[in-house]
Design a protein around this nucleic acid. Structure first.
Lengths: 212, 212, 212, 212
DNA sequence: ACACCCGGGACTACCCGTTCAT
DNA sequence: ATGAACGGGTAGTCCCGGGTGT
């Protein structure tokens, strides 16, 4: 497992056009970012702190001064990811102000596109599956994230005038998680391709029941 | 066995032929069964061949004579599980002969009950998530299983008179996988509790569109 | 540990620093001590490195890092035991200072008591019997030990004023080894019970011949 | 176990003494003899049934038909050896008829010579040391042998007019066993060279106390 | 920032006692 | 009756993991 740490984000994400040094960003951030990426690629158990430190262009000791244990790093990594996911709703709100239904549709659209571009599925859900031990501190992070996601979805549904917002939100959660895991297990031509249509159908079905 | 200190033959002597034999079942089966269970409990990466051999009341060498590698054992274990899952459809067919709609409902019912009793979700899907390496031989097994499952679901839908059987089957797949992973990530009070209602609603929705 | 299923770090998390630490003593010492005990109980050939490592609360690799081979471990174990036996003479010298005859009697007394409390006999002698291969490195350790033991016995005899110190020492050696092996072959009611009286008689006999 | 002893005669049913074949002796005997020798050379645990069968110019199956288990073979081997040892006393009785004292001296002489020619010591005692498990059937054989040996020594002593025959016999036993084990642990120049003199001195000492 | 330690997982080669198919 | 196969086991190797002291 050599370094091979080239940032593939020249196309999207962090644009660092000004920095010649890749390490202008503080080590802590570099470590978390690198860790997240490697966790996603190889699984949490599949990558070691050694490789993370090396890929982050630092050393194990610095890593341990910042995090104390791999478990802490895992948690921090998951926390960051969940923050980034939160930002997504703000984007939608900005993109479709005063149009909750469009926000909901936008969510489906966005998630649907992610299914193609991010075949690794949901990092948080994957972590939950990989970390069987229910006492692992990551589970708290995961659970909180899941609740937040659902709440935001519920809010979006409610704003969109859906009466049974909770039910719809739950259903959409199931479809999303299902599509993500199905993407990993069955490939891109499996049931996950049905995600968008299923969402739209379900939303339509719930909207019908609700007096708009 | 803590220290293997009890020898059986040259030092232990006696062994009346009626020695405790908890293992009428051949070692190979014991190993696969035990492995499946331990994989489910601790994850594939979370359990070692040594522990499997010990739990199967045999030793590492016998394990390796039968399987050659842990990867082979993983594949065999997944194959068994997928066989068992196949049997499930036969059960439904026997239980509701000549009533395809009831079979479909029975599937929902059965899956719904499993969600409560088997919090570890789908072993195959979990394995797909844990085994990131796309070249891992297990992926072939998993993919085949997923296709089979989907096909059987498609057939059931079609038999039940659904016109867009593929779409419904895919949607149900998504809901099921989603519910299973959500069960692990969010606990039993998360979106997974919505599985049954969602399935029923979706089935009803598809049935409506199909002129039976 | 039956299944090693309890992981410590990545899945177990928490580990408060005050984790149960029954092992202030370094692994190397634990291994040697444990090995000595298990060798004594089950014979050198009767116990495996795996069982030793497990009983020493470590693993095979650590064992091999410290010793390189089971044979080395055997040698080290025997060396330790022979050191402990050396300390015995110091005890006697401290207990009976300036009274060589009492030291000799004390030796008989002590050995006699050991016959009852340590039915496994002399580890070094047993090892010599079990390890038939004369090229085994343990034989050097054993031989050195035997010579040392005899020399100390000779010195004690000489200090006690015995003229034919070598002969007496050899005879006492024979009686001791004989008693120890007889203890194992014939039980505690066999000839070994005669050890003390035989020693005393022999000592008296040699003392008589020596004009003090 | 079914066929006991096959007929070894090459022609008809007569016992043909003109054996050209070296394996005129029945397989069972060959096996036991070979086993005894190999056990003595490599230790009981140090040799396998495979090697025994091969050395006895037969195969494992035949061995197992005759003995059922290695443990049985061990026992039989030890039984034979103990028989041979019994014969030794008869020899002495024939050699020195009506002279018990000479028989005792002869015993010492003979044992002393054996110490030089048989460096492996007493097979029975060695077996007792190697087979730590007290439940091993061999221990019964060993114990019986030891008792017999002691009894015969006691009888010889008593016949020689020793009053404290038991004490002397026990002492001689200790010296013999001690010499044998010392021979293995310390080599031929160790305390075992003192065996003869020690025996003679002890006998003389006991004889003195007894009114001849 | 390096080297080190302990731990452990996967795997190999070989042996032993026993049974079975031939 | 003979060799192959089986179930069990042990010594030993390699590599990587997390964590610590320097």
């Amino acid at each position: 497992m050599s370094t091979h740490v080239e940032k593939k984000t020249s196309s999207g994400g962090k644009i660092n056009k000004t920095d010649i040094k890749p390490d202008q960003i503080p080590p802590r951030d570099r470590i978390v970012t690198t860790a997240s990426e490697l966790f996603r690629m190889h699984g949490i158990r599949g990558i070691g702190v050694d490789a993370i430190a090396e890929a982050a262009q630092t050393n194990k000791m610095t890593l341990y001064r910042h995090f104390g244990s791999k478990d802490e790093l895992i948690c921090e990594s998951l926390r960051r990811i969940s923050c980034k996911a939160d930002g997504l709703w703000k984007e939608l709100a900005e993109k479709f102000p005063d149009d909750p239904a469009a926000q909901l549709d936008g969510w489906v659209e966005m998630r649907s596109r992610c299914l193609g571009s991010e075949p690794e599925g949901c990092d948080l859900a994957n972590a939950a599956i990989e970390l069987k031990d229910p006492d692992h501190p990551a589970h708290a992070v995961i659970e909180k994230f899941m609740i937040d996601q659902r709440n935001q979805l519920v809010a979006a549904c409610r704003n969109a005038g859906i009466e049974q917002a909770e039910s719809l939100a739950d259903t959409l959660c199931l479809l999303l998680e299902g599509a993500r895991v199905s993407r990993q297990a069955s490939g891109e031509h499996g049931p996950s391709h049905q995600f968008r249509q299923a969402c739209e159908a379900v939303i339509a079905s719930f909207a019908k029941r609700s007096p708009s």
